[in-house]
Design a binder for these strands. Structure first.
Lengths: 216, 216
DNA sequence: GAGCAAGTTTGCAGAGACTGCAGATATAGC
DNA sequence: GCTATATCTGCAGTCTCTGCAAACTTGCTC
């Protein structure tokens, strides 16, 4: 099912044709869907049109994504997973907030101009639609959950201590505020440096909050 | 269109038959819908069934509520409005957090056993459904918005200061955590006293956070 | 390379939310 | 009672999403 590559990195494994084809189809669906959403709006784009542009049947779309919206938010599950790993594997004594800071720093400097454009286009689509804005916020819940758990560990907080969840919520809010800063009126990335300065402010604020005694 | 009542409070105005009938229909829809949701689950209840039980046509349901979900969250717009008023009309110098505290205190002691049961039933319905849980969180956004604005005023914070939004998010999170505390496994109200103690903890935490210097 | 098992794609039929429209019905005010 | 106006309803239609079974691909074995 998996074939080792003869050349190059010995641990690198090349998936079979079937798997590669699937990945390609998935990517095509994402690409054409995002293009259509950006061009004519999310609601104005039907599954049938996406299927048509991706040259698959409408039924196939649903073999890849549970819902139309999941096409737009295609990368969330992966990111949640990565964050989960990072937090789980953090060395003893590494504060959750520090790990989070670095994780966010990492996600602020995207790999390529291309993925930058994809991300930007997507943000414009989301901001332009009430329902999507709502649901984006809702989709942050898994992140909040992970962050809250990690912070709770750091604080040795019991399940009834609301502080971890509050801090996680504050972080999620701050992060989306920074990320979605005016993508319509000024469709530019906040420069990564600016963003990190803001994040560090936020971290400072939250650290301060957690250090105030008398709460437990 | 409106008729003054002959007896009783002189400023009291009694709506015409048309309006009263509308209110009654609306209430009936809400009642039967909540009953059906509680009995057989949200997804398992169709608009047609609600219409049937409320003795209106399915089409009429959509004259009253923009979507099936809005039946379940029927009271949110009203509460948002009330919170908006309370915050807008707060006397000079009354801290937003204090006003919020009182507002929450008010909403924790419902008028009647009956409305208590309605609220409890609804929470069970929501908690039992992934999508509804998500969307409940998302529907708190207007509250967060109002709170953030009021807090920003108190702090004389500029639009780029993220603290008001963070604190508002923390509050929203804390509030729903308290309210939705285990409604399935232990379908009981947290006693209002307990709840207020928790809220006061939360308030203390947030006040502490905002007092830490060095952030602006 | 033929052939089989397992995975993938597709079409079809259908449920269910929601919308626009136009005709029927009810209320308000005279 | 009569008319203007608000409300209700049925109808036809769109769209997302699902289950199912038949076609098709791929991977593997002989």
């Amino acid at each position: 099912m998996l074939q080792r590559m003869e050349a190059g990195n010995a641990t690198h494994v090349r998936p079979g044709l079937r798997e590669r084809k699937k990945q390609k189809t998935r990517q095509t669906i994402i690409d054409v869907a995002l293009a259509l959403f950006a061009e004519r709006g999310y609601e104005q784009t039907t599954i049938a049109e996406i299927a048509d542009a991706a040259e698959v049947s409408p039924r196939t779309i649903f073999a890849y994504f549970p819902s139309k919206e999941d096409i737009l938010f295609y990368d969330m599950p992966e990111i949640v997973e990565r964050l989960g790993e990072v937090l789980r594997d953090r060395p003893e004594g590494a504060a959750a907030l520090d790990v989070l800071r670095d994780f966010i720093a990492g996600s602020l400097s995207p790999d390529s101009n291309d993925s930058r454009n994809v991300a930007l286009r997507r943000r414009i689509v989301i901001v332009g639609n009430e329902t999507l804005r709502r649901n984006q916020r809702a989709r942050l819940a898994p992140f909040e959950q992970l962050m809250a758990e990690a912070i709770a560990e750091d604080l040795h907080a019991g399940p009834d201590d609301l502080r971890p969840r509050m801090v996680a919520a504050a972080l999620a809010t701050a992060f989306s505020a920074i990320q979605d800063h005016d993508p319509v009126t000024s469709p530019k990335w906040v420069s990564p440096e600016q963003a990190m300065a803001l994040i560090d402010d936020v971290m400072g604020f939250l650290r301060g909050a957690l250090e105030v005694p008398g709460q437990d």
